[in-house]
Design a protein around this nucleic acid. Structure first.
Lengths: 159, 159
DNA sequence: CTTAAAAATTTTATATATGAAGTATTTTCC
DNA sequence: GGAAAATACTTCATATATAAAATTTTTAAG
């Protein structure tokens, strides 16, 4: 019947963390939905498609489906559909590596690369606008605080 | 042709904000996917369904579909499907208010309310665990920093 | 009161998303 | 070298999601 260590305002720590989680989720969803809407209206592209192109833009030599799904933290089957649709638009292409007939190397087409460059620039400007409330110091601070959370399992250290 | 004000390390501010956005998104998605998996495994419920029940738990008198969709920041049609599935499980019920035959009042059933209480407790513990890296001061700090972002348009000030 | 506009939902088409099952190909191991 | 395990993908069933169209009911205007 001993009361666990909880001094002063210690009791509601779990409530406070819950509030933090709700804030984090709300912030991310708000920004995400704004970005998604702009991508759709201005470039007729979805955010998952943009995310895939962004991942591929970092790897000129391409990646296979598994690497893509791990980097984007989405399921294997999900990537199949997104790549399928990007391939129809000739923005990405699948290439068979002679060594392993199970996998594909996916990469941006020239059309995909040049189109991505344009969209990425607009995207960066939008983010800059939506996060205008943060100066360099605050951004650094937040980035560091959020750093520990990201990888809840295997972590892709990208840059 | 004058160069805009950008001293010292000012140039990459937009890049820094982009990094912040990627961190924020990655953190939110990581936690979200962990919570979603636990909700599914332990309680056979989806996160959108949990979110709807959480919203309804705050309003014993119920809400109509439009209020729900605004509070959850999701589309109108989306809520229809989630409520449909919760109704099949007898966790929520639609009630016709005599005054306006266009709308419904949705509320938790007794079964839904008691089940939600159990799930919500587990959910709070999970969040407490996943955000264990933040003490009270850091949580407060982060909550405040994120506060300005949330509402990118109309804002629901809930609590 | 009747038509037009507004409001609340649902329906539809399309795109994600997940987990699980299925298929094809490589690797491992004896 | 041949069966068993591991890999790499795709397919399937189900549940979100959104935007746009359609439906029903209320409200507003004249």
């Amino acid at each position: 019947m001993t009361v666990a260590k909880q001094s002063v305002s210690a009791r509601p720590l779990s409530k406070q963390r819950l509030r933090l989680w709700l804030r984090l989720l709300r912030a991310a969803r708000g920004i995400e939905s704004e970005l998604r809407e702009r991508l759709r209206k201005d470039f007729a592209i979805t955010m998952p498609q943009f995310d895939v192109m962004a991942a591929l833009a970092r790897k000129p030599d391409g990646m296979n489906m598994t690497e893509l799904s791990r980097m984007l933290m989405v399921s294997n089957g999900n990537v199949t559909g997104i790549i399928d649709r990007l391939a129809v638009e000739k923005l990405v292409q699948r290439q068979a590596p002679a060594t392993d007939r199970r996998s594909f190397i996916v990469r941006l087409t020239p059309k995909g690369a040049s189109q991505f460059a344009v969209v990425a620039k607009a995207h960066e400007n939008w983010v800059d606008e939506l996060l205008a409330g943060f100066d360099a110091a605050e951004a650094d601070h937040l980035i560091e605080m959020l750093g520990g959370l990201a990888s809840s399992g295997r972590g892709e250290t990208q840059s």
